[in-house]
Each structure stands twice: as C-alpha cells, then as structure tokens.
Amino acid sequence: MSENGKRKVKVSVNGLTKKFGDLLVLDDISFTVAEGELLCIVGPTGCGKTTFLNLLSRLIPPTRGNIMIDGEEADPKKHNISFVFQEPSCMPWRTVKENIAYGMEVKKVPRDELESRLKKIMDLVGLSDSADLYPNQISSSMEQRVAIARAFAVNPDLLLMDEPYGQLDVKLRYYLEDELVRIWRELKSTVIFVTHNIEEAVYLAERILVLSNKPTTVKAEVPVGLPRPRDFRDPEFVEIRKRVTDLIKWW
C-alpha cells in the first residue's frame, strides 16, 4: 500500500469477518481504499464476493470487524453509499430520468441541486435523449447505464459495483468500461468494482485485490500502474493479467 501513502484514506475495512452459523465465509479481511481510487476485487467463483459486498454496503451486519468511511463507522443513512447490481435495477414505473434521480431523492438533495446534477450526469452517460423513456423502452445495456448514473449522481463516498457488466456482450462491455473510467475520472468517486473477469479488472483498476477461496481472505494485492487508455495487447498488460490469473489459480 506504499503508493497510497500520499493519498487520503477514504474507506478502511478492519478485520471484517462473517459467519453464517458455524460456516466461516469471510475471515479477517482488512484493506483500505484511498479517496478517489478505483479498486477492483477479483476472486474465484463462489469465494463469497456477494456476501462481501453486502457487508460493505451494510445490507447485512458483520460478525466481527468494521468498515470506516472518513474515520466513522459506515452507515447508509449518514454516508452516501451506492450499489450497482449485476441484475437490472431500474424501476419500471419511473422514467430514465426519475430512475436516475431516485438516490438523490432518498438523500433529500434540494430540487435545483438535483436538477443540475441530473443534467450533468445524463450528459456524461449520454442518456439525455432518453430521459423520458421507460425502462421497457430501452435496451438492457442502457438500463445498466441508468443504474450507474443513479449511483454516481449521489456523489458517493463509496460506490460498490457487483459485476455490472457481467450480463452484457463483449463489445458493449468494452464500451461501457471506457465510459466508467471517463465518469470516474470526471467525478473522482471512490469505487470498489467486483468482477470475476480478470481482463476487465486489469483494464479498469488502479489496484487489484485478489481474494482466496472460502473462507475468504485477501490473498494478494496487485497495483496496476499502466497509463490510460490501456491496451489489452500491451505486453505489460498481459503480464499483469497473467500474474493475477496465477494468483487465482494457485492457492
């Protein structure tokens, strides 16, 4: 974590442990995320990624350990935590615009502030033309962009993404990954992006955390210092991808 020394710590996870009955799922996970960092988390299938995210978003309580945001215990009512789910999460009774505004409504963002943020984020994700359409009138990739716009719109302290592009085809994924990097750089949000796609992780992350099999711990930490835009065929890119792949393969 040496290169994070210069950056302010935004989120720190300390000794996070979760047991379901006697089954130990997460075992003493500790790490920090710097302010404005894009951190990817990869791990073998069934390593408890979903449990891990549910703990981070405070949907379920940990058995032991804590999650601190800006030195305070994380709390969805106090902090702005956003979650982009793998499955579509647009409410069918709200238009694109109303869906994006939902998080800000819960956060009680004042009306004119809400409108101006709405406009900015919709321009950023290119949804301005579709503002008044309903979710059943747009494609599934657009639905996912609405969810992402909604997540960024609350100016999140912590943005959690659970394989948001897992169900999209490769071409769209490349496009949306670039878009994500663009929005993230523009808004400087702190992002934890969970994926099982190693290439995606290397393409996006400033740093990759590799999780082990159950009971899950942080197995390794791989910084990705490549310049952007990144190239999948760049030998250095391939090298990092191999390293992460080996880490997941051998335990």
Binding site: R58, K77, I81, G103, V106
Partner: peptide
C-alpha cells in the same frame, strides 16, 4: 436492496 443502500 438498492433503496436500502441509499439509506431509505
């Protein structure tokens, strides 16, 4: 779940 993470 989405609403809960926003603190609703």
């Amino acid at each position: 779940r989405m609403a809960r993470t926003y603190g609703a």
